[in-house]
Structures are given as structure tokens and as C-alpha cells.
């Protein structure tokens, strides 16, 4: 499933890199610890987190993640958005909690993995 399809199905709000939504998402990864994401996430996964600072963009770029979903309607810092545009990393937002959006994404991706 492409990131664009996920955005539509889960009603995510696109905050950055809206031209970079055509890639296929491999799976999801939910974590707020950056060392954990660096160590354990895999390429093309969609990252679910409450972290909103600049460093999430560097982590997503280094790990070649397909994008970042910010939970609980959290708003990223201005510099985070600027960096995400520069690096072409889609940042998406949801009102759902991490648990709820993880469940929804899992249900979407599990059968079509």
C-alpha cells in the first residue's frame, strides 16, 4: 500500500513533503525512543511517534523510513517542518493516540504486507 492510500484511509493530515507519497510502505514502527528507532526500524516503514523536534527528520532520513505520523494532534516545531521539506520526508498528523493509530495501521498493512 502506498503512503498516499494510507493517508486517505486513516484521514491523516499532511504537514510536509506532500509530493513524496507514492512510495510503498512496508510496515509500521511505533516508538518515541530515537535509539530504538535507529536500531530496530526498517527501510520504508512508517514511524509513529509523539516526538516533534528536528531530530526525527534525521532519523527518518538515515533509516529511509517512508514517513512520520505524529500522534495526539501534536504540532511539529517550525524548524522540523522546514527540514522535512528539505529532506523530502513526509510528516503526517493524526488526532489518534499512538496505540489507536498503530492498531489502525497494523490492520491496514497486515493482510496486504
Amino acid at each position: 500500500m502506498t503512503l498516499k492510500q494510507i493517508v486517505e484511509k486513516l484521514n491523516l493530515v499532511i504537514l510536509s513533503a506532500d509530493k513524496n507519497l507514492e512510495d510503498k510502505v512496508s510496515f509500521g514502527y511505533s516508538s518515541d525512543l530515537l535509539s530504538d528507532v535507529i536500531a530496530n526500524s526498517k527501510e520504508k516503514e512508517l514511524w509513529i511517534t509523539l516526538q516533534i523536534h528536528l531530530n526525527i527528520v534525521a532519523v527518518a532520513k538515515l533509516k529511509e523510513l517512508s514517513g512520520i505520523i505524529l500522534v495526539n494532534n501534536r504540532k511539529p516545531d517550525e524548524e522540523t517542518l522546514k527540514k522535512a521539506e528539505e529532506e523530502n520526508i513526509p510528516i503526517l498528523s493524526t488526532q489518534d493516540s499512538a496505540f489507536v493509530i498503530s492498531g489502525k495501521l497494523y490492520a491496514l498493512l497486515d493482510t496486504k504486507k
Binding site: 518515541d32 525512543l33 530515537l34 535509539s35 530504538d36 535507529i38 536500531a39 511517534t49 516526538q51 531530530n55
Partner: peptide
Amino acid sequence: EMGFGAGLGLPNIKRN
């Protein structure tokens, strides 16, 4: 609070 400082940095380096 930023999601650092979990005490995983050096162990992650060593493991990899």
C-alpha cells in the same frame, strides 16, 4: 524528553 538518553547508545554501537 526528546527521546534520547535511554542508555542504548554505546550498547547499540557495540552490538553493530
